[in-house]
Simulated assay, not measured.
Amino acid sequence: MVGVLVQGKPQKVKDVRDALGRNRHRQKDSYIFVIAQKIYDDAGKIEFDDTKKTERKNFVFIIDEINRGEMSKILGELFYSIDPGYRVKQDDLGDENKTTTIRTQYANLQKKPNKFDEALGIKDDGENENYGHFFVPENVYIIGTMNDIDRSVDSIDFAMRRRFAFKEITAKQSQESMFGNVKKWKESTEKDISPELLDELKNRMDDLNKKILDPKYHLGQAYQIGGAYFLKFAKYYDSSKKNESDAFKALWENHIEGVVREYLRGLDKDDKFLIELKNAYYGDKEPKKPGVNGENPTEGTDKELGEGGNA
């Protein structure tokens, strides 16, 4: 896209292909053509006043699940531009000697200064060919969210880690932010839930997560179940039916059990450990399954293998 934009507004799809140095047409060239035209049309409606100073504002760019892609390839030149050493301060604008910026890989195709060049004080004097600069201002903040224990995604390499500060959001913090009180719960789920039931939901989450920290499971804090899982309780709870027991059962079987089982995969006593974590979640409130004479056919197994009680 950058290579197309620096050539000027494309008039036909062939211009896109020529700008990218290709001999054959690709389907995506039509999309690039439409997007490039839209960018140029909208840019023409913006009035720039280089002499007017505006009050500094901070801007935030949020990338959800940032580790689900190969960030060095996704960001391109931006990978270097977000480094603190390449950020541009407002007081440095207008003097290219005060800043350290990068030039895009298509900079040699650019015969006139772009907006970044102009901001750095680089003018079109007919002799200067040092065009095609790019930078990220210091007041642009990039926030990426990630679950670093996901097995299906790549880890963040050290080059990318150098460019970010890391802040862990614990399971307890997610609990407080997602359903810290009844009012927030109602606003986010439109479900009527009593303070007592909300406390029970939080207690079950605390008991399970406390049990997960047991060293024999070899898991740790990163494997604790976050509030997003327990918020799914609202999918099954209906206050008019007073079905909280069934709702807790559905929450475990449909959402939490599978995650915990995957955590324990490969351990020698994974079945036993799963029952122990299940007991921590249910405490002494596990729904009874109808068996012979109304007894729970799995109750004996749980008592034999698990530790029972709250974590």
Rank of each mutant, 00 (worst) to 15 (best):
F48Y: 08
E196I: 14
D91Y: 11
E187Q: 12
A280D: 02
N254A: 09
D50A: 15
D302T: 08
Y86R: 13
A119F: 03
V2M: 02
K38G: 11
V13H: 03
G266A: 08
I143W: 01
I62Q: 07
E262T: 15
I102K: 05
A43W: 08
P290A: 13
F33R: 02
F134C: 02
Q224G: 03
D268A: 12
I143G: 01
E77L: 13
G226I: 04
V88Q: 01
A165N: 10
P84E: 05
G258M: 09
Y282N: 07
A228L: 08
A19V: 03
I275V: 15
D41L: 14
F59R: 05
N310M: 12
S188K: 14
M160Y: 00
G294V: 02
G144E: 04
G291T: 10
G306K: 05
P195R: 04
K186N: 09
K52F: 10
E276H: 08
I32G: 00
Q90F: 09
Q224A: 03
N139D: 10
E276A: 05
R26D: 07
S194T: 14
M146S: 05
D154N: 13
D83M: 06
G8A: 08
R151G: 13
I102E: 01
K38H: 12
I35N: 03
E299Q: 13
A311E: 08
N108W: 13
G69R: 14
P10C: 07
Y80G: 09
K191F: 01
E118R: 10
G94V: 07
D91E: 15
